[in-house]
C-alpha cells in the first residue's frame, strides 16, 4: 500500500514505465553528464512500448557543489540539465514527423528553486527561464509534454518543472502531494492576516489555498489521478489526447493559456477572463489605427 511518493521517484518510474526500461542519462544518441546535477533524474524509458524522455527529480540526492540544493530543491545545474535533456530529445527526433515525436514525461516532486546567495550572484533566474523556454521549444516541435505531480509542486519549482506542460496531472492530497506557492501558515505571517481567517476563507476561495484540488479549480491542474496505480494508464491516455488534439489543429486546447480558460469554467479564476475580455474590446477599437 503506497501512502506517498514524496522522495520515491525511483518507485514512481517503476510504476509508470515499462518494466526496467529506464536508462538514466541517455536520450537518443546523447549521453548526458552523470556528474552534473545529481538531483536530476533524466533519461529515456519505454511507455506502453513507445520510447519517451523522462524528466524527473530525485529529492533524495543532494548536489554536493551547492549547499542549498537538497531535498528536491532545484538549483542552477538542475535547471540546465533539464534543458539539456529536452534539447537532446528534440535532437533525437529531428527526422521524425511532427505527430511521431516522443513524449516527454515530467515527474514532479520539488519544494522550489534554490534560495542561495551563489544562485543570486550567477543567476538562478536564467536557469529557470532556460528550462521553461526549452519546454516550449519541445511543444512547438510536436513532443507531447505531460507533467505528473507525484509529490511536491511548489512555487518556482513548479513554475519551471511542470507548469508549462501540455497537460498537468496530479495525485490527490491523500498521497501527501503539496501544491502551492507557500503554506497558508507562511502567508498568514507575511500578509499579517490571522491563520484562522485564512483557513475559513479557503473554503470559498481557492486562490491562496494550498492543495492540488484548489489548483484544479483554478485550472492549474488538468486532471486528478485518483491513485498511484492509475498514473501509468492516465499518462498513456493523456499522451494520446495531446497528439489527437494537435492532429486536429486544436493545439490551443493545450498548455497554460488554455488552463486559464479551464480555470474560469471551473469557477476558480473568473476575474482573469473578465479582465482579458475588457482589454480585448479596448484593443479592437484602436487596432485599425495601430495598423495604419
Amino acid at each position: 500500500m503506497i501512502t506517498t511518493l514524496i522522495g520515491k521517484t525511483e518507485e514512481a518510474i517503476q510504476m509508470i514505465f515499462d518494466k526496467d526500461s529506464f536508462q538514466e542519462n541517455i536520450i537518443g544518441t546523447t549521453h548526458l553528464d552523470a556528474e552534473l546535477a545529481p538531483p536530476v533524474m533524466v533519461g529515456q524509458a519505454m511507455l506502453d512500448g513507445e520510447i519517451c524522455s523522462v524528466l524527473a527529480n530525485n529529492s533524495r540526492r543532494p548536489n554536493p557543489r551547492f549547499r542549498v540544493v537538497y531535498s528536491g530543491i532545484l538549483g542552477m545545474e538542475e535547471a540546465y540539465k533539464f534543458s539539456q535533456a529536452i534539447y537532446a530529445t528534440i535532437d533525437a527526433d529531428k527526422d521524425r514527423p511532427k505527430d511521431k515525436k516522443r513524449p516527454i514525461i515530467l515527474l514532479i516532486d520539488t519544494p522550489g528553486n534554490s534560495p542561495g546567495k551563489i544562485e543570486e550572484i550567477v543567476g538562478m533566474t536564467k536557469g529557470t527561464a532556460s528550462y521553461q523556454f526549452a519546454i516550449e521549444d519541445a511543444r512547438l516541435a510536436g513532443h507531447p509534454v505531460i507533467g505528473m505531480i507525484i509529490g511536491r509542486a511548489v512555487s518556482g519549482g513548479f513554475l519551471c518543472h511542470g507548469l508549462l506542460s501540455d497537460r498537468i496531472l496530479a495525485l490527490p492530497k491523500e498521497y501527501g502531494t503539496i501544491v502551492h506557492v507557500m503554506p497558508t501558515t507562511s502567508i498568514a505571517v507575511i500578509t499579517k492576516i490571522p491563520l484562522e481567517r485564512l483557513n475559513e476563507l479557503v473554503k470559498t476561495n481557492p486562490v491562496f489555498a494550498s492543495g492540488a484540488e484548489y489548483f484544479y479549480d483554478l485550472g492549474g491542474i488538468d486532471e486528478m489521478v485518483k491513485k498511484p496505480e492509475d498514473m501509468r494508464a492516465t499518462i498513456i491516455k493523456t499522451v494520446k489526447e495531446v497528439r489527437d488534439l494537435r492532429k486536429q489543429g486544436k493545439g490551443d486546447q493545450l498548455g497554460i493559456w488554455h488552463r486559464g480558460e479551464i480555470g474560469a469554467q471551473r469557477g476558480g479564476r473568473k476575474k482573469r477572463m473578465e479582465a482579458i475580455k475588457k482589454i480585448d474590446e479596448e484593443y479592437q477599437k484602436i487596432l485599425p489605427e495601430l495598423l495604419k
Binding site: A129, Q132, F133, E136, S155, F158, L159, L163, L164, H180, V181, M182, I187, I190, T191, I193, P206, V207, F208, A209, Y214, F215, L218, G219, G220, G255, I256, W257, R259, G260, G263, R269, R272
Partner: peptide, 23 residues
Amino acid sequence: GVRLHEANAGLLMHSESMETIWE
C-alpha cells in the same frame, strides 16, 4: 513577484507571461 494574497493565481500568470515571451 507573486502577490501572496492571491498566490496561486499569481503563480499561474507568470507561466502565461513566460509562454507569451517565448512566442
